[in-house]
C-alpha cells in the first residue's frame, strides 16, 4: 500500500460545487477508476483520501492536491490515465506523483483576485496599503480584525483591462485566510470579483509537492 498524490485544476462551472461535494465527486471518480484502492476500516469503508487545503465555492484553482492510498504497484502513468478518464468536467489531473512532503506542510497559497471595478490599479493598491479591517465570522462569533499582517505578498496590476490583486496568504490547517476577505474589504470599490488559486506552497515558499 502506498500514498499517491494527485495534482489537479478545478476550473469552469465546477467552481459552483462546494468543497464537500467536490470531495465526494473525487471519491466516486476513484471508485470508478478501476484502481486497486485502499479502504478505511469500519462499517462504512471508503477510499482513504485527504485534501491539502479546501477550496471555497466560487473559486477556481490551478493547483489542487489530494492524496489517496493504493494497493500494489501501478505505474504512475497508468494511474493518471485512469483518473483522468474518471474525472468530471472541469477537473484536470495534471500530475500524479509520490508525495515529497507531508500534506500538513501546506502553508501558503497564491491567489489572483480579478476585480470588476471602475477604480485604477493604483487606487486599489492604495486602498490595500494600510490596515485591512474586515468582519470575520466563525461558527460562534463575529469580530473585526486587521488581516494586513497575515498577508505575505500583495501586488496590484492591470491585465486585459481588469484590475488584478495577486496575493500570497496563509493556507495551513490551523492558519488559513480566505482571499474573499480582501474582496470584502474592497466591497465599496468593486462591482464583482473572481478568485483563482494559483499555487499551494510549503513552509519554504516552494510549490507543495
Amino acid at each position: 500500500m502506498k500514498t499517491i498524490r494527485v495534482f489537479f485544476k478545478k476550473t469552469g462551472n465546477i467552481r459552483y460545487i462546494s468543497h464537500l461535494d467536490t470531495q465526494r465527486a473525487m471519491i466516486r471518480a476513484l471508485m470508478r477508476s478501476g484502481l486497486d484502492l485502499a479502504y478505511s476500516e469500519g462499517f462504512n469503508p471508503r477510499p482513504k483520501i485527504v485534501f491539502a487545503q479546501p477550496l471555497s465555492i466560487y473559486q477556481e484553482s490551478e493547483y489542487e492536491i489530494f492524496d489517496f492510498r493504493i494497493n500494489g504497484e501501478t505505474p504512475l502513468k497508468e494511474i493518471r490515465e485512469k483518473l483522468t478518464a474518471a474525472m468530471p468536467d472541469g477537473i484536470e489531473v495534471f500530475k500524479v506523483a509520490e508525495p515529497v512532503k507531508k500534506l500538513s506542510a501546506c502553508a501558503w497559497a497564491r491567489y489572483r483576485i480579478t476585480l470588476t471595478t471602475r477604480k485604477s490599479a493604483a487606487e486599489i493598491q492604495n486602498a490595500l496599503s494600510g490596515s485591512i479591517t474586515v468582519l470575520k465570522k466563525t461558527k460562534t462569533k463575529e469580530l473585526y480584525c486587521d488581516i494586513a499582517a497575515q498577508i505575505k505578498e500583495l501586488s496590484v496590476y492591470e491585465q486585459d483591462g481588469k484590475v488584478v490583486v495577486e496575493t500570497v496568504l496563509p493556507a495551513a490547517g490551523n492558519n488559513y485566510l480566505n482571499p474573499n476577505y480582501i474582496a470584502a474589504f474592497l466591497a465599496d470599490k468593486i462591482d464583482g470579483f473572481f478568485v483563482r488559486r494559483i499555487f499551494l506552497y510549503d513552509s519554504d515558499g516552494k510549490p507543495l509537492e
Binding site: N13, Y16, I17, S18, D21, A25, A29, P88, D89
Partner: peptide, 12 residues
C-alpha cells in the same frame, strides 16, 4: 446552492 442549476455532472 448554485450546483443545482449548472449541470456538468459526470455522465451528463
Amino acid at each position: 446552492k448554485p450546483g443545482r442549476y449548472i449541470g456538468g455532472e459526470y455522465g451528463e
